[in-house]
Amino acid sequence: MTTAAAIPPAVVIEKLRKTFGALVAVDGLDLTIGRGEVFGLLGPNGSGKTTTIRMLCGLITPTAGRATVVGFDTSTQSEIVRTKIGYMSQRYGLYDDLTVYENLRFYATVYGLRGNARTDRLEKHMTEIGLTSRRDQLAGTLSGGWKQRLALACATAHEPEMLFLDEPTAGVDPAARRAFWKSIYELSARGTTILVTTHYMDEAERCQRLAFLSRGHLIGLGTVQEILEQFHKPTIEDVFIELQARDEGAAA
């Protein structure tokens, strides 16, 4: 417990709010994520998942409230935050006209890796994700699953303390998804905190803790077991459908 007191939590969100004109995307969110957790953010489309992740990464500025990531304020210390986090969106952010190795090398260099340290790190990553044989292939010619692996490798080339994954497995086949989650657990085992949003319920069940968002509010929080008990449902999918129905009822 003493170490927990010394090291700040991976994410602390306090009364976070974001509005786009009249639309309230995130409405007074409070949430704390511990170090090394694999944390899932769930909710129907438009519930505020992506907006929350984008605020934590410093892509957009909160309207009100504050958030810290690995102990640094996302608004006032965003430059430091950016050196400590990795981010992978469903669009992957790869350069189609660069090769596998060039993409990795580019992102590693942007994150400050140089010389032998960079070469060693890249070789290690290439081997880990099994892309060595495709080293000189253009990223645009990779299949969805391989693109996803490369994107993950690019987002983690600098070995970030915190990794944000925004619907990382959208449009990828089941085998690739399984391999992807294996990598996620490996990162987690090394101490990386992971925040992931997803639509796939089997993926939600792989997370250690879950948060359900609905219309910008936090409406459920806990381990998979706790959530099931809270909502008296046999599976997470049932919880999700129940919440979505409640959402639509509230909207009507």
Binding site: C57, G58, E79, T83, I85, Y87, G93, L94, Y107, V110
Partner: peptide, 10 residues
């Protein structure tokens, strides 16, 4: 989407 990716880098 690479611009977004670049913005989250330092």
């Amino acid at each position: 989407g690479t611009l977004e990716q670049l913005i989250v880098t330092p």
